[in-house]
Amino acid sequence: MALNRLTIAWGVLLGLSVTALIVGNAAPGHAHEALGVAGVAGVLLTAFLKGREILLHYLELKHAGRGWRIILLTYLLLVAALVLGAYAAEHLGWIASLRH
């Protein structure tokens, strides 16, 4: 039995979900400890890759014009970068230093 592209995409999404779960629980000690900037970047990378997979294969963006792919994938990347930037600013104390 041949696998169709949606089944393969589902497998990729499942693998990325497990990866995000593993990376998200990688904080040493207790689960409530911060992952750190690198850990959050890893989780956001898997979220970006999952969003890309959904856009390209489930929503069939791969058949849309190149401009649409660029716009929507750039949006995903921008959201991930803003979340990472906000987390890094708080985690590294940049925001606290601005308050004083």
Rank of each mutant, 00 (worst) to 15 (best):
A64S: 12
A88Y: 07
V37K: 03
A88K: 11
I71L: 11
L49C: 15
L56K: 12
H91F: 04
L84V: 11
A26C: 07
W68R: 15
I54V: 14
H63S: 12
G67T: 14
V40K: 06
R52V: 15
I71F: 12
I22C: 05
I70A: 10
L13R: 08
W94H: 14
A26D: 09
R5V: 15
A81N: 14
A2W: 05
G15T: 05
P28M: 07
H57R: 06
T7P: 07
G67I: 14
E53H: 02
G24D: 06
S97Y: 00
A38P: 06
G42S: 00
H63G: 06
L13S: 02
G36H: 06
V18A: 08
V79S: 02
L35M: 10
V79L: 12
N4C: 13
I8P: 07
G36W: 00
A96M: 02
Y75W: 11
G42M: 04
L98Y: 02
W10V: 14
G93N: 01
I70D: 00
A34V: 07
H32K: 05
L61K: 11
V43I: 02
L3S: 13
T7K: 11
L73W: 09
G36E: 01
S97I: 11
E53R: 12
A27H: 05
L14V: 14
L59Y: 08
H57M: 01
M1W: 04
G39S: 07
I70G: 01
A38G: 00
H32Y: 07
I22S: 04
L84Y: 09
L21G: 10
G93H: 00
L72T: 04
V79M: 09
V40M: 15
A64D: 03
A38W: 03
A27D: 01
L82S: 07
A64R: 13
Y87F: 14
L16P: 03
I8A: 02
F48S: 08
G93Q: 00
G65I: 12
W10C: 13
K50N: 02
K50C: 13
L56S: 06
A96T: 13
W68E: 08
L73G: 05
L55G: 04
F48Y: 15
L61V: 15
R5A: 15
I71W: 03
L55Q: 11
I8H: 06
A86P: 00
E53S: 12
V83N: 02
A27L: 05
N4P: 13
V79H: 03
L44Q: 02
L73Y: 12
L55I: 12
L44K: 08
V40Q: 02
L98F: 00
A27V: 06
Y58D: 11
T19G: 01
R99H: 00
L59N: 01
V18Q: 04
V43S: 00
N25I: 02
T74G: 13
A88Q: 08
I22T: 08
R69G: 00
A2F: 07
Y75K: 01
L82G: 11
I54L: 15
L77E: 06
P28H: 04
T19M: 12
L73E: 05
H30S: 03
G11K: 00
A20Q: 13
A9V: 09
A9I: 09
V43A: 03
I95R: 11
L98K: 03
L56G: 10
R66N: 06
L21T: 07
